[in-house]
């Protein structure tokens, strides 16, 4: 009976810290990311996949609108489509990254990887759904039914992603199997510094307008360099409005980032629409 006594993973020790930025001004809501994700990650195929609340899909195309606001008027309201996957939360403590879902798993089926990606072992999961309860982004999905792939649909399955059993929780892993694939390729070519290898998740590769970019949050050369994103007035993260406090109230910003209930997601959304920034980041009624 070996308990889980892993050494702490410090963010500063991580060779890579993968993150994503999604420019919603460029997003047309076409759905390419969602289909590419489903194809890459072997999403199950049921007779009725429009069954939304039980649907198994890693990347959800959400429709966001401000028309339920009390003071919204016809003509002023807007809609936006939001590709939403796992935010790969880092937690508030860089010396001990604790996403909300990792600490609650009773069987260590989910953990933070050396690249900051929150992994999930399908075959370890007992399906208690405690992680689903803990996730503020509804990023985790449960296989309510046995995953099915009717007939020849099985031909299109990707061997890099194992097929989950019924009754387990599955989630987006930033397509980390593609990173492994890329690294294996370079190792075969004799490259030894495998951490230098970069990769692109399926959703980002499929985006027709280049609205999604992916890279290393710690790398100043990367399109998602975190320090740059933090200074970007268009940048916002889901559910928490902490980022908006950075300029208006630095003291409160510092305090908020230290307190525990800050998941610190690694997916950033960029938009110049004020209403959308408010909608995405919080519940404040404008």
């Amino acid at each position: 009976m070996s308990g889980h006594v892993a050494p702490k993973k410090k963010v500063s020790d991580m060779k890579r810290l993968w993150g994503m930025a999604i420019d919603l001004d460029k997003c047309t809501g076409c759905g390419a990311c969602q289909v590419a994700c489903s194809q890459e990650n072997n999403m199950p195929i049921f007779d009725d996949d429009s069954d939304l609340p039980k649907r198994v899909v890693f990347l959800d195309l959400m429709k966001v609108t401000n028309d339920n606001d009390r003071d919204a008027k016809f003509g002023d309201v807007k809609v936006a489509y939001l590709p939403k996957m796992c935010m790969q939360c880092a937690g508030n403590d860089p010396d001990d990254p604790q996403p909300p879902c990792v600490s609650v798993c009773p069987v260590v089926a989910t953990d933070v990887g050396d690249d900051g990606v929150v992994s999930q072992i399908w075959s370890r999961c007992i399906g208690c759904r405690y992680c689903q309860a803990s996730c503020p982004y509804e990023a985790r999905v449960f296989n309510w039914w046995k995953p099915r792939y009717e007939g020849s649909f099985k031909e299109g399955l990707n061997p890099d992603v194992s097929i989950a059993s019924r009754g387990t929780v599955v989630k987006c892993t930033f397509c980390s199997h593609i990173w492994k694939r890329e690294r294996d390729r370079l190792i075969a070519k004799g490259v030894t510094d495998i951490n230098a290898v970069q990769y692109t998740p399926a959703c980002v590769a499929a985006c027709p307008t280049g609205a999604m970019v992916f890279g290393d949050l710690k790398d100043p050369q990367s399109p998602v360099y975190e320090e740059k994103l933090k200074r970007d007035p268009r940048a916002v993260r889901l559910v928490h409005s902490i980022d908006a406090l950075r300029d208006t109230n630095p003291a409160e910003y510092e305090r908020r980032t230290k307190i525990k209930n800050y998941p610190n997601p690694k997916v950033w959304y960029l938009t110049s629409d004020q209403w959308l920034r408010e909608k995405l980041s919080g519940f404040k009624k404008s």
Partner: peptide
């Protein structure tokens, strides 16, 4: 739980965490 046959994982792979108290409630 979705996987009743794996219920014993709670005993064999407990999320004990680094401290004295279990990490997962």
């Amino acid at each position: 739980i979705g996987q009743p046959l794996r219920a014993w994982f709670g005993y064999s792979y407990p999320n004990w965490g680094p401290g004295l108290m279990p990490q997962s409630m």
